[in-house]
Design a binder for these strands. Structure first.
Lengths: 113, 113
DNA sequence: TTCAATAGTTCGATAGTCTTGAACTACCGG
DNA sequence: CCGGTAGTTCAAGACTATCGAACTATTGAA
């Protein structure tokens, strides 16, 4: 919890990294969930709960370093939000098309609505 | 050259596999090149020539099994074409947005035009 | 048919990455 | 200060990528 939580600048976003980050089912679901507006979410809420913390942490790191999400420390937890505008500005339509194509699984919190 | 060259059916295409296949710079370039209309192309023409054949073969296998390309044996070579319509039907806008976002590098044959 | 050349594939080894439990760090409430 | 909570880091095994070398299949000649 001491490291700076690095985020790439908008202009440094790489399409390959974005696609790679979204190529994993769990990461895609996290992004889908964040984009669905039930966010910002901390790590344990945004990720499927049965997945080990270390794995979650790894996936959030990939998403963060690809520039897909913005992570902020808020006390003991990390609040994540999607960098939708920046990604759309850099790669117009990519995220939207992918999110529409992603089959709408349930968000971790969606069943409580 | 004896194996059947398996292609998934349109309805079996998985978004994650498509994104994964496109997350590699060389594979993205191959797809971009095929989509640019100078196709169909055999493997050695569609891929950067300095890459070893075994690596090329591996990448084409990934693209084929993700359902991005259609490969047909024509004598001694394999002719590849992009399955644009099927992918668009299944994941509308995804490929188009990605191809537009991909920076237009030169096709291997483009400089001869 | 036999032979050499061509186009890809398969194999094996090395190097890098993913997953996960265990240990660790940071923050908050009492 | 202490226990609990939220994430991170580390290390080990499994998995995957790269690439040279050996192999297979097809073509076109002699």
């Amino acid at each position: 919890m001491q490291r700076p939580l690095l985020h790439p600048a908008s202009e440094d976003l790489k399409l390959e990294s974005v696609l790679y980050a979204l190529a994993d089912p769990m990461r895609l679901e996290i992004v889908r969930c964040l984009a669905a507006g039930d966010c910002p979410l901390n790590c344990s809420k945004a990720a499927p709960s049965h997945v080990p913390k270390s794995t979650q942490s790894h996936h959030f790191q990939i998403l963060r370093e690809a520039g897909l999400i913005q992570s902020e420390r808020r006390g003991t937890e990390v609040v994540n939000s999607i960098r939708l505008d920046e990604i759309n500005a850099r790669f117009p339509g990519v995220i939207d098309a992918i999110l529409k194509a992603a089959k709408p699984l349930v968000c971790p919190d969606a069943d409580k609505a």
